[in-house]
């Protein structure tokens, strides 16, 4: 899936075109987060960027950490626990994932 990152190509332009399709997009990250949060949805209210994870959803702190662990493996990043503690909304979680994935 992410093998393009490992390709070493002499020509810079070619490298750029190879890497860009595998770069994470925000909608992709949002979709993945929503997928993992769907089981905890309450009522008809959709999960959006402004959704406050611990408040608007029926999810406890342990389940949040378990969900984060799934996302970590999906995007091959680690989100330290102290960073998780600072995340409140779905949008903030997406930002954190994009930031950590870009640093990889």
């Amino acid at each position: 899936m992410r093998t393009a990152h490992n390709l070493i190509v002499e020509n810079d332009d070619v490298t750029a075109t190879l890497v860009s399709p595998t770069k994470l997009s925000r909608p992709e990250v949002m979709a993945e987060i929503c997928h993992h949060l769907a089981p905890f949805q309450t009522g008809e209210k959709p999960i959006v960027g402004a959704t406050v994870i611990a408040k608007d959803l029926a999810i406890d702190s342990l389940a949040i950490m378990d969900m984060v662990m799934e996302l970590e493996d999906r995007f091959d990043i680690s989100i330290p626990m102290n960073v998780v503690a600072e995340i409140h909304t779905v949008a903030e979680l997406a930002d954190t994932i994009l930031k950590l994935a870009a640093r990889r």
Partner: peptide, 21 residues
């Protein structure tokens, strides 16, 4: 310290997290 959890009793999950450091 930076604290990272790995999946319960799963050495490959630990491996992935050590590798990412």
């Amino acid at each position: 310290a930076e604290v990272v959890r790995f999946k319960h009793n799963d050495p490959s999950s630990l491996d992935a997290r050590l590798r990412r450091i």
